[in-house]
């Protein structure tokens, strides 16, 4: 029987395109599904926006719901200063959401189940948000690392703790998405293995569980995209309005 981890295998779909140092860069299934996510998302949003009705139909309603959700998220967590980051945060949300959802289709590859992908996203966002904070507040930005009104004598302990806490953000952000997607997909594969192993006699029980877990996985796929984006909003807010 196929290993439950086989679904995460990276397969080269092309000859090496070019080299970065000694690492050959090829077009992999992971890259293919990233393109697919962007493509499907673009088709969905363009189709949803093509009719522009006052009373939205199903497709337009869905797109408006996603738009409203991200807009509300930025309004609640960042405020008016966050408005100009809406395009980026919306794209981020849609990219992760469609990556997760495409991964729920059997035989597809889930690119968000690789720490390399999620950490690259989280780390890039972390760097950009830190730079936004530094450009906006100058050196005053570093007051983020020392709580307001704490006695100066506690600085040698508090500052390292705050710095570590700050550096742990991209780690928790990326591990959360990666771990949730990986665990969910492994769980589905293992349970599906039980169905086959127990056959027509006892296979019904894991099959029922599998149906429930599949529904849960759709929830997780959506929720993780939501959490990733809302945390980016919260971090952006910290950088813009130093608390």
């Amino acid at each position: 029987m196929a290993s439950p981890l086989e679904q995460f295998e990276i397969v080269d779909l092309s000859k090496p395109l070019f080299m970065i140092g000694k690492v050959p860069i090829t077009f992999t299934n992971s890259a293919a599904f990233m393109f697919a996510a962007v493509g499907v998302a673009s088709i969905f949003l363009i189709a949803a926006g093509s009719r522009k009705q006052l009373v939205p139909g199903r497709l337009q309603g869905l797109a408006e719901m996603l738009y409203d959700m991200v807009a509300g998220m930025i309004r609640d967590n960042v405020g008016d200063a966050g408005k100009k980051y809406f395009p980026f945060l919306f794209s981020l949300f849609i990219f992760i959401l469609f990556g997760n959802m495409l991964g729920m289709i059997p035989y597809t590859f889930t690119f968000t189940s690789h720490i390399a992908v999620t950490f690259a996203m989280a780390f890039a966002i972390f760097i950009v948000i830190t730079l936004i904070g530094i450009f906006k507040h100058g050196l005053h930005f570093f007051s983020l690392f020392f709580p307001h009104g704490a006695p100066l004598a506690t600085a040698p302990i508090l500052i390292p703790i705050e710095v570590i806490s700050y550096l742990s953000r991209p780690v928790s952000l990326s591990v959360r998405l990666f771990a949730n997607m990986t665990v969910g997909h492994v769980l589905l594969k293992v349970l599906a293995g039980f169905v086959v192993a127990l056959g027509i006699v006892g296979g019904w029980v894991p099959l029922l569980v599998l149906v429930g877990i599949t529904a849960l996985e759709f929830l997780v796929a959506f929720l993780q995209a939501y959490i990733f984006t809302i945390l980016c909003c919260i971090y952006l807010n910290d950088a813009l309005h130093l608390h």
């Binding site: 509300g72 609640d76 570590i164 742990s168 959360r176």
Partner: peptide
């Protein structure tokens, strides 16, 4: 409009907290 609510939201918070704790320890 506020995103997922009720039970869904609580699952989200639960999933967050465990990883926040581990991330701090690992980075340190």
């Amino acid at each position: 409009g506020g995103g997922p609510r009720g039970g869904t939201e609580k699952i989200g918070v639960g999933l967050r907290i465990g990883i926040e704790l581990v991330a701090g320890v690992v980075v340190g």
